[in-house]
């Protein structure tokens, strides 16, 4: 006697086609799509589908991931042409038909879905991504206190997970790879907006050039694709104002940058 096939198990048997951009440097002339069928993928995220492919169909498939819960920022890729986190994109939420998966746009491909992050990391490092205390305090003098309002001023910017989706979406970064970009500006504002921090001027000096905040033309798509509602466009905008005032007020500054 066979088990009755209920609707649910029929749904679980649904097959999804993934078209994945493949590239192995030194072997392939140029990137090309490979197609994979994943069965029973109704409840899977794109990341889980990639893992299934790697485990059962092609062990050479390369991609980055770690947390699979949208906090590490490593699984960013172009899914149907939009930058998204693979671990928080459910296959069943995508329009019917084959799902296209490509490495993040605007970055050099290292292999398959893995892109080179070197330039991005350098940009993050360049904005002094750490607290530069306004005043040095000994342990005996107690902690640097902050009111809830002071914390709210920068808190959303501290949610950035460095996933680079905003860079993949930004047409100005696509035009000018040296543009500091939305993510690094969010990082900058996270510290410049912190009442305990004293590094504001140092950071403003890193973004006052053409490749700094002034490469932005207020497209705003960075904030639309951000998976953590960081609103990097707001960080960029605030710092256009800050940098513009700095442009004129620098002559009144007593302390000149070294």
């Amino acid at each position: 006697m066979s088990e009755p096939v209920n609707a649910e198990s029929a749904v679980l048997q649904k097959t999804f086609e993934l078209r994945i951009l493949r590239y192995t440097p030194g072997r392939d002339e140029e990137p090309a799509f490979g197609s994979f069928q994943v069965t029973g993928a109704e409840g899977m995220t794109v990341l889980e589908a990639l893992q299934t492919i790697k485990d059962t169909l092609d062990g050479t498939l390369s991609y980055r991931w770690s947390c699979r819960m949208a906090v590490c920022g490593s699984c960013g890729m172009m899914i149907n042409g939009t930058p998204r986190l693979a671990c928080s994109t459910l296959l069943r939420d995508l329009p019917p038909g084959p799902v296209t998966v490509e490495p993040l746009q605007n970055f050099p491909i290292e292999r398959d879905l893995v892109i080179s992050v070197d330039a991005f990391v350098k940009k993050i490092e360049s904005v002094y991504p750490y607290l530069i205390p306004k005043e040095q305090k000994t342990v005996a003098e107690g902690p640097h206190l902050q009111t809830p309002a002071q914390m709210a001023a920068y808190e959303s910017f501290s949610d950035c997970i460095n996933c680079m989706l905003c860079y993949a979406a930004c047409p100005q970064f696509g035009e000018n790879p040296d543009f500091i970009g939305p993510g690094a500006m969010a990082m900058l504002q996270r510290y410049n907006g912190d009442s305990r921090d004293g590094g504001r001027q140092k950071r403003l000096d890193t973004i006052h050039g053409e490749d700094g905040v002034w490469s932005c033309t207020a497209v705003g798509i960075c904030s639309e694709v951000c998976p953590k509602q960081v609103d990097p466009a707001n960080a960029v905008n605030q710092n256009k104002t800050n940098s513009a005032f700095d442009f004129f007020l620098r002559f009144l500054r007593t302390e000149q940058p070294q």
Binding site: E125, S243, A244
Partner: peptide, 19 residues
């Protein structure tokens, strides 16, 4: 060690941006 970007020449964009 953190890498620092070379400090770029100031852009004159602020003038046009404020206008």
């Amino acid at each position: 060690t953190f890498s620092t970007r070379e400090i770029q020449k100031r852009s004159i964009s602020p003038i046009f941006w404020l206008l």
